[in-house]
Amino acid sequence: MPFSIVAQIAVSGALMGLVYALVAYGFQLTYATSKSINFGQGELVMVSAFVSLSLIDLGLPYWAVVPLGLLFGALLGLAVERAAVRLALEQKSEGWILLTIITGLFLFSAAENVWGRDDRPFPTPIPSAPIHLLGVDVTGLEISVAVGVLAVMGLVELFKRRTLLGKAFEAVSADRDAGELMGISATRTVMLSYALSGGVAALAGILVSPITTVGPTMASAMILKAFSVAVVAGLESGFGVVVVGLFLGALEGLASLYIGSGWREAPGLALLILALAVRPTGVFGKAVIRKV
């Protein structure tokens, strides 16, 4: 097989892998503040994509729909926190696992009833014509995925490092009680993390929809792979999910090329099992240095 085709498929796959990285980043955000993750995150991706599509149907321009879609995702994240997470965390229970799964199922059924079961195309002004770049063809849509993912993750990281509220976010992640003693409300910090996580999920939906179409099941495979990426990279490192996302995306492309398209989903699960067996803290998971 000519190398150019292999490179082409690896690059396209890697760019799609950035979407997994973005969703995995959403897992990291809530895990940092509350040690909880939303197992219905895929439904947040899907419902936000549907809502954005409906806004486009209403005649709003794409560039107005993007921020509105993100806002909707953030609100939905807040709703999940309120409905499924907060009470469980207050009672120091693991009930959020089941409750977030249930919230996801509820959103799934609601989406099927409101928007139907069919996959629908997502119109976008971003050109899908390929651009020749360093020997491979990259479409405008793929570039928009890369730019969107990296820009938003960069912004969130800047927020965490450069603003006092962001440092407070890190403080609560490091030591919830000590954060409270500084006057930082842990509850509000957890809410903030769920809002950010919801916004990030919505962005993933908006970025990927023009490529994959919008449907109730659009995120069910994606979420598994995002979960793999989060576990393989470790639940702490934003840089880690990007690297692992790119890697897994490329691997999926190559698996479907060499083994067959039915094997596309296999590398994600294989990596997940491998990581859990060999390095459960994740490749980029770090033990905090602490002197006592």
Binding site: K167, A171, L181, I289
Partner: peptide, 28 residues
Amino acid sequence: PEGRKVFAPLSAEDNLLLGAFPWLPRFF
């Protein structure tokens, strides 16, 4: 608190800044 409970992954200065969280501006 007992056991000091400093924010281990943050710098010493960030720890101090967070001490002033109640009266400092949140962003810039």
